[in-house]
Each structure stands twice: as structure tokens, then as C-alpha cells.
């Protein structure tokens, strides 16, 4: 029964993703606000260049970003047996932000350098939070992990603060500040091609291992008795997902709440089993982020930072889910 409804949800979301991807190509503020008639693609040289060298790579990046953040959120929640974690709460996003800012300041602005630096610090953030939470001697697992993630994130945001303080206020500071607010305005094909392999490797790993994620959400001794190599499988999943998230964060800046809220909605739609909830979270996340980015770039004459939008929408949805008991936490 549930299986069939899972399939239906999947088809609807798949079609929805394609429709939104195609429709968004014509959304924007050229030649006038909101809608560009498709025939302009044939008639107007500027429209063609705008669409194919700016809008398309940006849209595809938004899709990858949403898919990766949501799938990573779903994997982290299940692997850490904690429905309240997401990349932003686990030190990953802030760590990646620190790594990217460090790179913009001193290591060089080559996209690949920024990406690698972001990935390295994103991983340091994740494992820092994890090992800190193992050492805490009070509270349940849910609480300890959230507290550790908050502390590690705070440390990295302090680090970012220091970097902003020493940055050149005329050249580097605006760049870091706008980047931190989160947005996809600077995305080019070159950025897209650099993150694509990391994102695909992460998404593919999470997709292929999705049923194992169920197994890893059980207690260690149960998962072990069922033949899982718990530590090794967790490491593979965490490494793949965090690398993908950090790579995308290096071009998007901090995009919060997507990774927390989307997996909850996915589980609500098709049930808790990661077999269906992870693919559904990927599609939902892609749709959510593409739509948010459409609003970010079309609504006002000036661009609204995407990170601000996703936080606002995500936090409101979170409040709604909390009140309507869509989120249950046993601490």
C-alpha cells in the first residue's frame, strides 16, 4: 500500500522537477520582470546568451544544491539516529564557510582551491562535532549532538568573523559577506563543472546505499548482528555526503534549513524507510531550492540572498511541523 503511494509520489515529484527546471529558464527580470516569452530565445541574441550562459548553469546548480543538502540531511539524521541534525547544525556548513573564506583571503580564488578548502574544513567540522558529543557526559544523544554541533559551528563562525575583520574592506570583505549570505548569483558553467563530480559522487553513494541507511539507524549491536560493518559504512556515507555538501557550499555560501526540513517532509509523505524517503528528499530538495532561487532572483529588482529565503521559509515550515506533530524527538 505504502509502496505504491511511494511510487506515485516519486513520479509526481520527478515530473515536477522537470517542469520547474524548464519553467524556471523563462523566469527572471529580462526583458521585463517575471516572464520571458520563449520565442525570444529564437529572436533575441542577448536573451539566448543570458539563458544559456547564466540561467541554465545557475538552475542546475540550484537543483544539485537542494538535492545534496536534503539527502545529506536525511543521511545524517538517520546515521546519527537524531531527527534534529542537518549539515548546518553539525558544523559542516560553518566549517565549509570558514574554509572557503580562508581560501578567498589567502589561498587563492580558484574555484577548485576554494572547493577543496571548504571540503576539508567541512569534514573537520563534522568529525569535531561528532567526537565532542562522544565526550560529553550528560544529556541524551540527541541533545549532546545538537549542543556539540552548535559549539563547533560557533567556533567556525568566530573564525569567519576574524577573517572578515582582517579582510580588505574594499575588495575582499564585500565578497566574503555576500558569499556568506548565501546565493547563486555568481554561478558560471565553470563553477558548475567543478562541483558536478563531487555532487554526483555524493548523491550516487547516498542513493545506492539508501537501504543500508535504515540498518545504520538501529543500535550498533543490532546493525552488527545483521552483518553491517557499522563504522566503515558510516564513514563512507559521511565522507561522500559531506564532500558533496561542502563542495556546493563553496559556491553557494551558507544555505540553511533545507537539510533539516526537507527530510522531515519526505518521511511524512512516504514513510520513514530510507529506501523511499532519501530519493523523495532529493527531489523535494531540488524543487524547494530551485523555487527559492527563482524567487531570490526574480521577485525584486535587486537579488535577495538565497540563504535568507531558505532560512525564512524553512524556519516557518519547521514551526508548522513542530506544532502539527510532524516532528517527533525522543531525547
Amino acid at each position: 500500500m505504502r509502496k505504491r503511494s511511494g511510487k506515485q509520489v516519486f513520479i509526481i515529484l520527478g515530473v515536477g522537477t522537470l517542469v520547474i527546471l524548464l519553467g524556471s529558464v523563462f523566469l527572471g527580470r529580462y526583458p521585463r520582470p517575471y516572464w520571458m516569452p520563449p520565442r525570444l530565445l529564437l529572436e533575441d541574441e542577448l536573451a539566448r546568451r543570458l539563458v544559456f550562459s547564466l540561467r541554465v548553469p545557475r538552475l542546475l546548480t540550484a537543483l544539485l544544491l537542494g538535492m545534496t543538502l536534503s539527502a545529506t540531511g536525511a543521511v545524517l539524521q538517520m546515521v546519527f539516529r537524531n531527527p534534529l541534525v542537518e549539515p548546518g547544525f553539525m558544523g559542516v556548513t560553518q566549517g565549509a564557510a570558514f574554509g572557503a573564506a580562508l581560501s578567498i583571503l589567502w589561498l587563492g580564488k580558484h574555484p577548485l582551491v576554494i572547493e577543496l578548502s571548504a571540503t576539508l574544513f567541512g569534514l573537520i567540522g563534522l568529525f569535531g562535532s561528532y567526537f565532542l558529543s562522544r565526550r560529553l557526559r550528560f544529556g541524551g544523544w540527541v541533545l549532546r549532538l545538537v549542543l556539540s554541533g552548535v559549539a563547533v559551528s560557533a567556533l567556525f563562525s568566530a573564525g569567519v568573523g576574524i577573517l572578515k575583520y582582517v579582510a580588505d574592506p574594499l575588495t575582499q570583505l564585500p565578497e566574503i559577506t555576500f558569499w556568506l549570505l548565501g546565493g547563486l548569483w555568481g554561478v558560471t558553467w565553470r563553477n558548475f563543472w567543478y562541483v558536478l563530480p563531487f555532487a554526483l559522487a555524493g548523491l550516487l553513494t547516498m542513493f545506492l546505499m539508501r537501504w543500508r541507511v535504515n540498518l545504520l539507524s538501529l543500535k550498533d549491536e543490532t546493525a552488527f548482528s545483521l552483518g553491517a560493518s557499522t563504522n566503515r559504512e558510516r564513514m563512507v556515507l559521511l565522507f561522500a555526503s559531506v564532500t558533496a555538501t561542502a563542495a556546493l557550499t563553496s559556491i553557494s555560501g551558507i544555505i540553511g534549513w533545507v537539510g533539516l526540513i526537507v527530510p522531515h517532509i519526505a518521511r511524512r509523505l512516504v514513510g520513514a524507510s530510507a529506501d523511499t524517503s532519501i530519493p523523495v528528499a532529493m527531489l523535494l530538495g531540488g524543487i524547494f531550492t530551485m523555487l527559492s532561487d527563482d524567487i531570490a532572483r526574480s521577485l525584486l529588482a535587486g537579488e535577495i540572498p538565497l540563504g535568507i529565503l531558505t532560512s525564512a521559509i524553512g524556519a516557518l515550515l519547521f514551526m508548522y511541523l513542530m506544532i502539527s506533530m510532524g516532528i517527533k524527538v525522543r531525547a
Partner: peptide
């Protein structure tokens, strides 16, 4: 104490 933190069927 088997714990099943996510609401599987």
C-alpha cells in the same frame, strides 16, 4: 533495549 528511532512500519 532495541531502539528504532525512525518510525518504520
Amino acid at each position: 533495549f532495541e531502539s528504532i528511532p525512525f518510525n518504520f512500519t
